[in-house]
Design a protein around this nucleic acid. Structure first.
Lengths: 119, 119
DNA sequence: CTTGACTCTGCCCTAAGGGACAAGGTTTAC
DNA sequence: GTAAACCTTGTCCCTTAGGGCAGAGTCAAG
């Protein structure tokens, strides 16, 4: 299949797919003339990339995972678990930050109304 | 004072201060030769920008606020309160998103260990 | 053969600056 | 007066994960 179909099947744009290829996140596909030709394996791979992105992994991290997998040929479950744990820690700190921002916004609101509001 | 002192007093880098000027967020200061010369008003202004950034306002939003203030000459408290409220809503939706990501990470963790783990 | 849909590469753009650099300005020490 | 040391200037390239566009090439159908 050509890139448009892969895009439709995975929800990634053709541009995104070419980006993944350009940074070595997916292998360079065969060409029919100048057109990239993809297989079902590529569909599965791009799907995995999208899902991993959706839970907070960036492309550099995914690239490391792909490199590990190709070294090891076996799924590195320990490393994956560590990554998940560190992602969850980061989420916790993001939440703390958000709550702190919310408190600051409340304070700012009260201060504004004390200073400029009526009574 | 020159830009370095303003930077030290406000915690913004000289680069950031020039950026604020380039987008019209702070007025172009007087020059002594080629050097920008700032006053205490600029210190206060950059301080306010930093604090507003810290609670989640981006430079475009701050520019709008500055424009409003220069039109009105009076602090637009109603608008500010609306902005604060909408920021807080956004924070709430960010929180929801983070909690959803965390749930997905938990599920992913369990799934990985069911599929690849021992026992 | 032609039309329309698809794809190719390459370039510029995003937010908020960071880093490097060469050139020139200022201040301090001697 | 002069040299060293520091400060400022403008310019360019870099960051994420692509979006948008231009111009050209390519494919399948009628």
């Amino acid at each position: 299949m050509y890139i448009g179909k892969l895009a439709k099947l995975t929800g990634a744009s053709p541009k995104a797919i070419r980006l993944y290829e350009s940074i070595g996140l997916i292998p360079a596909p065969a060409r029919q003339g100048k057109y990239r030709v993809y297989t079902d394996k590529d569909v599965a791979l791009v799907h995995m990339i999208r899902r991993a992105q959706a839970v907070g992994f960036n492309l550099a991290e995914l690239k490391e995972l792909v490199a590990l997998k190709s070294q090891n040929s076996q799924f590195p479950i320990k490393i994956a678990n560590k990554l998940i744990a560190s992602k969850r820690e980061k989420l916790r700190s993001d939440m703390d930050k958000i709550m702190s921002l919310d408190r600051q916004l409340i304070e700012l609101h009260e201060e504004l109304n004390r200073t400029f509001g009526k009574t």
